[in-house]
Design a binder for these strands. Structure first.
Lengths: 162, 162
DNA sequence: AGATATTTGTTATGGCGCATAACTGTTATG
DNA sequence: CATAACAGTTATGCGCCATAACAAATATCT
């Protein structure tokens, strides 16, 4: 607050500061996320995937025969939005909508062999690019970052939601 | 990979895991950001602001007489998107578009008294809500989180952008 | 000075992620 | 058997972001 008062900065060349905003965790989170998100989208595009379809494919690969509503809950999104995602994955022959024996409402989602393979390849590519993007952080810092992010995520799990 | 093989989990009650996704920094970042973003949007709505208009207002308050292109650069967005934002703020009498003496192309954006006041109030409310959302993190952890996020943000500043 | 390039703001347009609401068919519950 | 609860679906709109093309003003270069 001491140096660099409230002068008119119009003439100053360099990047215009957003110090006030950067003090907000939400804003800093947004900037960091936006960087990684843009890059991830570009990488996934090379596999014919988008962020949401990749995410869904990951969950489906991890837990076979799950239903769409479970998928929605896992990804913290509304059921309605999973429909298009699952449609896309199904039409690309990456997953299958199987019927479940005693419940004709729900589907049992299962990844095809092609789906699992694409998932593996895309994940490798993503991790490679994340390693580049996060090159400034050492292993300990990355681990700490993840720990803190998960803490935020799990905190409100029962709390604010509504 | 050892325990909890590839069984059909359809019957298992609890939340469906997305462990594989959680190992990606981008995904964990997304989840944490989404939590804070949703909450922040709700808070700002009470002030008649959205996240982008609040962000712009913050930068304009901090550095008076800045131009729209500088605003765009500060917020890492395209110039074209600042137009609607500045329009909105101007129509709400929170900022003014002043002409600059020797350049008839650009505007000198300046917050009004009402704009500065609203910004102050909204910021206080935002900080209060962030304190709640981040209650699980102690002061040291919050500071470390910010440091790591800024590191990510500033890393690619010269790098990947293209 | 005059042709050319660059900068600033603007408009139009589309994509992506997300939410809500209303509906159908199916299963569970009283 | 009537009613409620659930799974999936459809339609729709909002918010944020990017790209492309354009007019007016300014900078640059010969």
């Amino acid at each position: 607050m001491a140096r660099d008062g409230e002068d008119t900065v119009t003439e100053g060349a360099g990047p215009v500061p957003d110090r006030a905003l950067r003090r907000l965790t939400g804003y800093s989170l947004k900037r960091a996320y936006n960087r990684l998100q843009t890059d991830a989208a570009r990488v996934l595009d090379g596999f014919g995937l988008r962020i949401t379809t990749y995410s869904a494919l990951s969950v489906i690969c991890a837990t076979p025969d799950l239903r769409q509503s479970q998928l929605a809950e896992a990804l913290s999104m509304e059921r309605s939005n999973t429909v298009v995602i699952v449609d896309t994955l199904e039409q690309a022959d990456l997953i299958e909508r199987r019927r479940v024996p005693h419940d004709r409402r729900s589907y049992a989602l299962r990844a095809t062999k092609a789906g699992r393979r694409l998932f593996t390849d895309a994940t490798a590519a993503l991790e490679r690019h994340e390693d580049e993007m996060l090159g400034a952080l050492d292993a300990g810092e990355r681990e700490e970052l993840m720990r803190l992010l998960h803490k935020i995520d799990e905190t409100g799990a029962n709390g604010v939601r509504g």
